[in-house]
Amino acid sequence: MSLTSDDVKKVARLARLAMTETEIQAAHAQMTGIFGLIEDMQAINTDGIEPMSHAQDLAQRLREDAVTETDQRELFQSVAPQVEKGLYLVPQVIE
């Protein structure tokens, strides 16, 4: 599979990364190099192999349904870029 600069643009958009045309071109070249490395995987037959998502083959542990957290809004919002009346402010969301 060869990566096009349109692919790179699409990916930058999906990842919410503003990129200039020059940056797209540079990223394209580097990503092509990296995918050259990654393509080595295709040489090996993995039919019938179970994909491995976790280092251990264990089941999820469950929490009891209890409220353990208290209000820390003031502390948490002390590191926020913009808040008002307890809300985080962002540029207008249009649906």
Partner: peptide, 25 residues
Amino acid sequence: MIGTYVLSHGYYDAYYLKAQKIRRL
């Protein structure tokens, strides 16, 4: 960018799933 690409539509099996299988090997 690499991560977004390998998870995006149409490439998941060829990259992500393949890599997970190799991880098991």
